[in-house]
């Protein structure tokens, strides 16, 4: 494993820990898109089915188990423990995820390494992950401002995607490893994050600094 891959995985881990820590400290899930979090549960479960068929390493297995359990736990927190049902704000989370699911399914049927259930679901998880943050980003755009939680969370997720790019370069040149599906969907995802950070910078950071005396 190279340093970029490790840093990428650690950023991903950090994003989830930030989310969990903030929810449990504030005892609130305000501002977090339930839809995005449910999409991540689907992403992790469909991608990590190979837990049952293939052993890669202890690190790989533990990380997969952590991602599945933490994503389910976060959905539980939003849906039951610190429910947002009484809040009007949930109406802001109205992105049509059906399109994301249908589009990812279609893409996975067309683009896959092998037409087997495991490979199709693996491809599906990549396509879905590439767009899973959209409901969260849409929610942020509607409210007009992001609190520290969502900003830090999305920043760490963006960092995770950014680190995976030099990781792919490294692996291509050092190991001859090139996973074209992972790279292509990963680039789409990174573009979404860069677009978000650009808009966020323009609207929030610049607006804030222009207000200062």
């Amino acid at each position: 494993m190279n340093i970029f891959r490790i840093l990428g995985d650690l950023s991903h881990l950090t994003s989830i820990i930030i989310l969990l820590h903030t929810i449990n400290t504030n005892k609130s899930t305000t501002g977090i898109s339930l839809k995005t979090q449910i999409l991540y549960v689907i992403v992790f479960i469909t991608r990590y089915l190979d837990l049952f068929t293939k052993f890669i390493s202890v690190y790989n297995t533990l990380m997969k188990i952590f991602f599945i359990i933490s994503s389910v736990y976060i959905v539980y927190l939003i849906q039951y423990k610190y429910s947002q049902k009484h809040m009007v704000k949930q109406d802001l989370d109205n992105f049509k995820v059906e399109y994301l699911l249908a589009g990812s399914l279609l893409a996975s049927l067309i683009f896959n390494y092998k037409f087997t259930p495991l490979e199709i679901l693996w491809s599906f998880s990549l396509w879905l992950e590439s767009v899973a943050i959209l409901p969260q980003l849409m929610m942020l755009t509607r409210t007009g401002e992001a609190d520290m939680l969502t900003t830090n969370y999305i920043f760490c997720l963006g960092l995770y995607r950014a680190f995976y790019i030099p990781n792919w370069f490294y692996r291509y040149f050092a190991e001859g490893h090139f996973d074209k599906l992972a790279v292509f969907t990963g680039l789409i995802q990174t573009l979404l994050y860069s677009d978000f950070f650009y808009i966020y910078y323009k609207n929030v950071i610049q607006a804030r600094s222009s207000k200062l005396p």
């Binding site: 190979d50 890669i56 390493s57 997969k64 390494y113 490893h177 996973d179």
Partner: peptide, 10 residues
Amino acid sequence: SESDVDHDEL
């Protein structure tokens, strides 16, 4: 046969 690419990333 094995698949072309190992899915060893997370």
